[in-house]
């Protein structure tokens, strides 16, 4: 789209799309095809990998809280909300499924916010500024799932914001996995363990590396019911199977030297796969929420 048309559209002007918009999902208009990710099965729920059986249904949230009532979203009432259970290491994941008509550059953009459920905290030592609940928020993650042609190669690109560690220390860094995102096939081959609370994106906790220049405190704001929205932009290339850039607000990270993790196995039935998903994971027994006001996927073909 030309810059003038985008600038004159009040909803699109906060985005920077590539020439062709594949989808622009404003969650004031409904779910727009975002749904719960689930592991593979043949009709028997018991076959689903334990980690991929309980990623929770996404919700259309008005960001309503006990203290202020409804907060609303960027330009309306609703956003897409992912909510974990109040169980340490539980994840919620929502996905949107497409296929590609040509290979090339793909850009995912969104306005997001993140919160931990308000939990009573020991207020001794509270300075009136720092929010105890900020330390209850673990991480949120963006991933793609790309399969080239009939049987691969298959590539999962993953970018995560790690907010806090399990001890409640703020980390506030963008990270990437250094090992493959496990699949149902890998689990059935015995390559990865089956455990319901492992990390879906990389089952070994040590298999994460900081992205270059990836430290970035975000605006949690001082109370769990104050919702500030952040712009994120992820540029990747389905021709070279590489991430190129990731931007969050005023932080731009060059990812072109980050190695891509390509699956060794062949995968059939997912020709030209172009999936994007986002996830939230709690590191303590407190519900964690990821809110998405709107999301846009654009391509250069």
């Amino acid at each position: 789209m030309d810059d003038q048309r985008i600038a004159s559209d009040v909803r699109l002007s906060k985005y920077n799309p590539l020439p062709r918009i594949l989808y622009f999902d404003d969650f004031d208009e409904g779910m727009n095809g975002w749904c719960e990710l689930v592991g593979n099965h043949t009709g028997n729920l018991d076959q689903i990998r334990p980690i991929a059986k309980d990623f929770r249904p996404p919700q259309l949230s008005s960001c309503t809280f006990f203290d202020i009532g409804t907060h609303g979203s960027v330009d309306g009432t609703y956003s897409l909300k992912l909510a974990t259970r109040p169980l340490q290491n539980h994840s919620a994941v929502a996905i949107k499924r497409m296929t590609y008509a040509a290979r090339g550059r793909v850009q995912f953009e969104a306005y997001i916010s993140f919160k931990a459920e308000i939990a009573s905290a020991n207020a001794s030592g509270w300075d009136g500024n720092a929010a105890p609940s900020e330390r209850h928020f673990g991480d949120f993650t963006f991933s793609n799932d790309i399969c080239v042609g009939e049987s691969g190669p298959r590539w999962h690109g993953v970018v995560r914001y790690r907010n806090a560690d399990p001890d409640g220390n703020l980390v506030q860094r963008w990270v990437r996995p250094t090992s493959l995102e496990p699949t149902t096939k890998m689990e059935r081959m015995g390559l990865v363990p089956a455990h319901p609370r492992q990390d879906f994106f990389s089952f070994r906790p040590e298999d994460w590396a900081e992205l270059p220049g990836g430290r970035q405190p975000l605006c949690f704001n001082e109370t769990a019911s104050k919702v500030n929205w952040h712009y994120i932009r992820w540029l990747f290339d389905t021709e070279s199977l590489r991430s190129l850039e990731f931007q969050c607000n005023d932080l731009l990270m060059d990812l072109s030297d980050v190695p891509s993790l390509i699956h060794d196995e062949k995968y059939y039935g997912i020709a030209n796969l172009l999936n994007v998903y986002f996830a939230v994971r709690t590191h303590v027994n407190v519900r964690n929420f990821l809110y998405v006001d709107s999301a846009l996927l654009s391509v250069d073909w």
């Binding site: 689903i48 309980d54 249904p57 919700q59 949230s61 008005s62 309503t64 909510a83």
Partner: peptide, 23 residues
């Protein structure tokens, strides 16, 4: 349509997770 519990076995009383449905 949201699936609140997916083939889960319970041996004690429980509540489903909160679900927003204001729309």
């Amino acid at each position: 349509t949201a699936v609140l519990e997916k083939g889960v076995t319970f041996d004690a009383d429980f509540e489903t997770e909160p679900y927003e449905a204001g729309w």
